[in-house]
Structure formats: structure tokens, C-alpha cells
Design a protein around this nucleic acid. Structure first.
Lengths: 217, 217
DNA sequence: ACTAATTTTTAGGTTTGCCTAAAAATAGAT
DNA sequence: ATCTATTTTTAGGCAAACCTAAAAATTAGT
């Protein structure tokens, strides 16, 4: 098995290697809030364990095994987030730190039973997809709310910005994931939008529009 | 906060100090499956943190603070056990290892919300009492099934032996916690008993009788 | 292309929690 | 009461995961 520290590095590399061919030591250090020298130590260890390929001075990326491992951690993280929000009345902005702890619990049975208990959710409360027990997840087309055509509608599936303030703002205006949302008008002057969600019309700022993702058919 | 290792020692001392004035280094080492020298190291640290009193060569016991801490860990452990059995279809004999991991998750909100979600259970699936958020728990009189008077009845509240085999045996014979159980007869010759549980009469061995606890009024 | 700036690695150190082996203290037996 | 056996502590080490500071490699500017 892998230590919690190893798992955290795996997760960090996974998120950083999106697109990138190789992830730099410094980028990992930034994300992990450690020093570059600590990252070098760990990269050697992950390479020894065949979880990452590591080319000194060039960078690293996860092997197939490493990606599999990352998917399992992310699966657990996101399932726990669903649990916290749906069953224990946590709000979006409170789940992250706890899920960060829960994602390291080792018990395939626990993970799979939790998945069943939650009715095999496909997305977490932020709209991010939840990998299944084999590591596969739904890669639907997400598009920024602001990129919809006027009059077009979609289902709110995710947020880019996960700052506490932003999530509180959404809660306050009762903008919920899974809600149908329709773009009615874009104000030329400041980029703000008039949208319709759950039957209510509301105005939202350019910044908010850019932080919301919708799934379109 | 306390490390996972510290928490495990606190829990071990708590369980061992029942009755005892002081718990010996060796007893702790036995329960923790470590060496006595490691225990000495940790006792010094716990004493520094005012979680235990430690008298070299004599032994240790938890301070009031240490007991409070132990109660919180036990609270979490037992709440998670209820969750696993009631919500995720785990059986008695599968919950321990997972609960052992989950008990270290740090989030008072999580613990209290879980408690609420489970409807403030008073006992875990083994019949052990669950401390409330202040560390108080119901100390009812538990008595070994074999110590009942002939004809007396009680509610099955706990098991001493938690070996897989034993728990499976109970499941197989549908002997469940919370069931009303009445002692009908003790066989002089081998100590086995005739009991009545949930309307069914069954014979159980001396060994089993000694491993079952009942709550009497 | 060569030097300067940046990035990355190496070397050596710290803390936590464990270990073994030896020394010290306590408990038990006669 | 003394000697032996057991328990406990001390001393010194090891691995994981972090750190700082210095050295080495890479990248970038002109």
C-alpha cells in the first residue's frame, strides 16, 4: 500500500499533468506546499514504485499504474463529498478538508458500499465526475455558462472557482448544481448576464458567469 | 492536535486502565504490538502533553484530559461502526479495521452530523455504549449471560469475544444484539445452557454463554 | 554563444515513531 | 535478605518525510 504522503503526491501530479507532457518539480512543490527538494525525494520514490516516470531535471508524469491509483483516490474523495453534502448537511464550501482526510481510508468494500448507498452518483457536489471502481468516468462536454448561445439552456454541473466566498454566494442566491439554467441576455457593457434558473430570473456578473459550467445536450 | 500514533496509545491506555490504578509499560506494548522501549518513549510524550501521568518503572494512567480525548476517539469509532453496519451492510466482524481508520478523522462537525444522521445511537453493533459529544455515556449494568438466574431475562447488549468465527456463529444462529434473551436451564455436566431468544429455544455452549453480555433491569 | 537567472538536485540535518541491545530498577523465591 | 528473573529504561540506530543551504543543470537574455 501507499502512504498518505505518496497518495497526496500522486493526486497532485495527476491534476497537474492534464495536457502537460511532464510536470515540473516546482509545480508539484507549489501545489503541495512543500519545497522542491522534498518533491525530488518523493519523485525518486514514486519512480522506484513504478507509479511515476521521472526524468531528472526534466519532470515527471504518472505511469498507467499511477493514474489508476489517482483515480481511486479521486473516486473516494468525490464519493465522500457527495455523502457529506447529501446525507450530513454539509455545504459545498465545508466538504473539502474532510474529504481530503477520508480519501485515504483503505477499504475497497467501504468505497463500493458507499457508492451503492449513495446510488452510484456520477458527479460530486462541484459537478466533477466520479470514477467508477475501474477508474472510468463520464467525460461529458462542459461549457462555460457564458459560452451558451442566447436562449440556450443547460444543466449546471460545475464550478471553476471553489473559494468559500464564491460558494456562499451561490448558496445565497440558490444557484444549485443540477439546476436547469438558461442564458437570456448578455449585457454588452459589462459582460453581466440575465439568466433563468428554476423559473427565477436573475442577473449575474461576468465573473460568476465565467466560473460556472453547464452540461449541454 | 494529536498524531494517530498518540491517539492509538491513548485508546490502549484507556481500555487497560479500567479498574487498574496504573497501567504497565508491558501491557501497553502487548496491546499495541510494539516493544516496551517504544512505549516508554510515547509515555514521556503523553506526559509532556498532560494527557497521561507517568511514573517511571511504575506505570501510567490518563489524566482527565486524556480520558476526554479517549472518549472522543471511542465515540467516533463506535459511531462509524453503527454507520457501517446499518447503512453500508457491513457485518459485525468486518467493521473493526475500517472503524480503526475512521476514528482518526478530525472534524467535530463530521462526528456530530454523523451522530445526528444515525439518530443518536446509544450503543454500537457490539452493544458497547457510545459517548456523547461531551464524553458521557450510559453505564448500564451488563452481566454475563451465564450469571442470570434461571428464568431471568435481559436484553443482549454485547459480546466479549469478537473473533470472526464467533461473530459468524452468532449471525448463523440469528442471535442478535438487542434481542430479548431468557436463561431457561444450565446443564450441570458441561455448563451449556438452554435459552429462549425471540421466541425460539436454543442450546448454547458454556463458552458462548460466557462471551455474551445482557442488560438487566 | 556566453553569462545570468532560474530550476532542480544533492548533502546534511530535524522530528516522529519505531527498533535492538545493554543497563538499571523492581519483584519474586528461597 | 539475597540472589535471580522480570520489567523498564536508556542509548544508539533506522526510515519516512520534511527542511535549509550549496552545488549542478537548465533556460533565457542579449
Amino acid at each position: 500500500m501507499h502512504s498518505i504522503s505518496e497518495e497526496n503526491y500522486i493526486k497532485a501530479i495527476y491534476h497537474l499533468q492534464e495536457g502537460q507532457a511532464l510536470v515540473s518539480t516546482n509545480d508539484i512543490a507549489g501545489r503541495m506546499k512543500t519545497k522542491a527538494s522534498s518533491v525530488t525525494d518523493m519523485l525518486k520514490k514514486l519512480a522506484d514504485k513504478k507509479l511515476a516516470e521521472y526524468i531528472p531535471y526534466k519532470g515527471a508524469r504518472l505511469t498507467e499504474n499511477g493514474v489508476l491509483c489517482a483515480n481511486q483516490i479521486i473516486r473516494k474523495h468525490r464519493l465522500w463529498e457527495v455523502f457529506l453534502v447529501e446525507k450530513l448537511d454539509f455545504s459545498w464550501d465545508e466538504v473539502h478538508d474532510v474529504a481530503e482526510q477520508l480519501e485515504h481510508i483503505q477499504s475497497p468494500k467501504l468505497t463500493n458500499e458507499l457508492d451503492k448507498f449513495l446510488n452510484y452518483p456520477k458527479h460530486d457536489p462541484h459537478g466533477d465526475p466520479i470514477p467508477d471502481s475501474k477508474g472510468n468516468y463520464e467525460k461529458y462536454t462542459q461549457v462555460a455558462l457564458g459560452d451558451l448561445e442566447i436562449g440556450q439552456q443547460g444543466v449546471l454541473t460545475g464550478v471553476v472557482n471553489t473559494s468559500r466566498d464564491f460558494l456562499r454566494y451561490l448558496d445565497k442566491h440558490e444557484i444549485k448544481l443540477g439546476a436547469q439554467i438558461q442564458l437570456l441576455e448578455i449585457e454588452e457593457f459589462d459582460g453581466s448576464c440575465r439568466v433563468k434558473s428554476d423559473g427565477r430570473e436573475l442577473y449575474i456578473s461576468k465573473q460568476t458567469v465565467e466560473s460556472l459550467f453547464v452540461k449541454i445536450k
